[in-house]
Design a protein around this nucleic acid. Structure first.
Lengths: 358, 358
DNA sequence: TTGTAAGCGTTATCAG
DNA sequence: CTGATAACGCTTACAA
């Protein structure tokens, strides 16, 4: 392919001049510029990105390290990152499916010299712990970390608060035998949601019953399995908090199959508010997490630290969540007719550290 | 940060030796190697990617250009690409949300020198037409293009065949008044599915009724809207083919709200078989498109052309699809009890040009 | 087995 | 306004 030298030669100028025309970095005589531009077009010359960033030590690229692209939640996060990046003229280098520290670090190493900063969602606590070397090399924004890491900006989801909100809602609705489907062991979101659940029960004078804490792994299938098991129970909970919407979906599917009607026989609530949640039957009461905003905001924070000359201490923010009431936690009631299925946003969760400005 | 020179200096060797140790590209005395490795670890030296690819002219990165990351379908494609790439030691540089030719080309230009090849899903026909300059610069695999492009490998989804299968299924089930919700104008998948629908009706001696071709845009909301409208119709179709699952979901939600029962009053079928489809109520009859496989296979094809010394003529393949029968198109029937909701794969669509080997 | 040095394609600093 | 030329950090002949 044509290089800048080919262009220079064909236009009868030096490479410096071509570079100046391309980047508008200094005055160039009109006729020279015209000649250069003509040759650039004719030769279909496109500058070589690696060479550019070797020199300028800027890549206009953001690295994204995710545990897994699976599920609507992560895909929304990444969509937010992509859009936020593109608005600022950045691209994103993605590396996902990091089960453990080693693969994550391998992904990160391959990004040295290719990205200006990193957005990382660490899968587990051990991984979070080994973020320090990364942070020495790049500006890093951590999504939902287990604990703060020196030198990393942080955005966390208000998991605890959301769980408190939704379990409180169940209690207020008269439920006392409330079950939960937990998420994968070691998963931060899962742990915080479980903690919020237990906290709220105790707060209401209900001692959490281990027999009502069903193990799940955030997959639809695991929710389905739990539903089948619950149907066989001698004494069932009257409400179940599935700690994500995927499991809630599977759960409702299984219950229906077993002839148990939601919400009449058992109320079901979820977490995340994936797009499909409002179209389920019955509509799923859940906690809205704006994954898109999470990703987009991470980009803004990262670009902020990239641009500031004197690095201020990294920021820590919390993404607020919203309780969404739908039919799956109600007594049998008729929806109000309208152009979209009824959903009612009820309360915004507490935002320690200040919520994220939209 | 430490460069290879720092390492060389600290280890008392030349940069060439360090490079050899790092890449295992030539014999190095054991004690030298040990000393170098020690320094590399101590200095936390990680090689600079841009510099490496500048002189090897290999980046170990694949570029991905998508119209939009929205929806489960695209996120599955990208997940397949990511996984396929990672298995071969490649990363992916993503650029999405390309509404038009210009933004897509801008994304592509920014990838010069940063990627070894490109996987592109062109949003519309005009964009497909301008793929030629790209193909001169990189190896390119086109996903679901409107028409073949010189020098580009191609993977297409068997949209037409899938539509034929599912509409035939409706006809076989006794339906004759069959409606369709179309997709966005200019969208290739949408057009092919519509074509398959009309073709199948005519084949069965039914003249397609324009009044039964409802306009949608692949969003849940548009399906919902059509559902509301259908409910108001004096003479309704007895079955509706929503050309993607998102619209089918919205449609079913609206019908239920209007007191129309699926499948008793109206049968509903979709296309794509997104993960949630089996958990809807009733389970959604649809055409399974393995988006993950589509992405993964694109990577294999791309890496194939990257590796072959003498470029053979690019390949054109078709991704077969599968009809999935669930409850939304059945008479009221009981599901067979089991550990997951019943789904029955019925037939594989015709695969012109040979299907994709799993 | 190791070192020297010539690039890879740009940008940026100097002179002119 | 324009042209040489020295980096940028690395790999790879070519020598030793």
């Amino acid at each position: 392919m044509a290089t800048i030298r080919d262009v220079a030669q064909a236009a009868g100028v030096s490479v410096a001049t071509v570079s100046r025309v391309l980047n508008g970095t200094a005055r160039v005589a009109d006729h020279t510029r015209a000649r250069v531009e003509h040759v650039v077009a004719k030769l279909e010359y496109w500058p070589h990105g690696a060479a550019q960033s070797l020199n300028t030590s800027r890549t206009n690229t953001l690295g994204v390290l995710l545990p897994d692209l699976h599920g609507q939640f992560f895909s929304e996060v990444i969509r937010g990152v992509d859009q936020g990046a593109r608005e600022q003229g950045f691209q994103i280098l993605v590396s996902s499916s990091h089960a453990d520290v080693n693969t994550l670090m391998a992904g990160a190493r391959a990004m040295v010299g290719r990205v200006d900063g990193l957005i990382v969602m660490a899968p587990d606590q051990a991984t979070t712990a080994s973020m320090a070397p990364l942070a020495r090399r790049f500006p890093v924004i951590l999504l939902n970390p287990h604990h703060p890491v020196d030198g990393c900006g942080t955005i966390s989801v208000a998991n605890f608060e959301g769980a408190v909100d939704i379990v409180s809602h169940l209690i207020t609705s008269g439920h006392r035998a409330i079950g939960i489907i937990t998420g994968p062991a070691g998963n931060m979101d899962a742990e915080e949601r479980l903690r919020g659940y237990r906290h709220t029960l105790r707060d209401a004078g209900i001692e959490p019953d281990p027999a009502f804490e069903f193990a799940g792994d955030f997959s639809e299938g695991s929710g389905f399995l739990v539903g089948t098991n619950i149907a066989r129970l001698r004494s069932r909970p009257t409400a179940v908090f599935a700690t994500n919407d995927g499991m809630a979906t599977g759960l409702m599917s299984a219950l229906r199959e077993q002839g148990i009607e939601v919400p009449r026989d058992i109320a079901v609530v979820g977490f995340d508010d994936i797009p499909i949640a409002q179209f389920l039957n019955p509509g799923l009461t859940t906690v809205h997490v704006d994954a898109f905003a999470l990703g987009k905001h991470a980009v803004q924070m990262l670009l902020g630290t990239l641009r500031e000359a004197t690095p201020t201490s990294p920021r820590h923010e919390t993404l607020p969540v919203t309780l969404i009431l739908r039919q799956s936690s109600r007594g049998k009631s008729k929806m109000t007719p309208g152009s979209t299925p009824g959903s009612r946003a009820v309360s915004s969760a507490a935002l320690p550290g200040g919520g994220i400005p939209s």
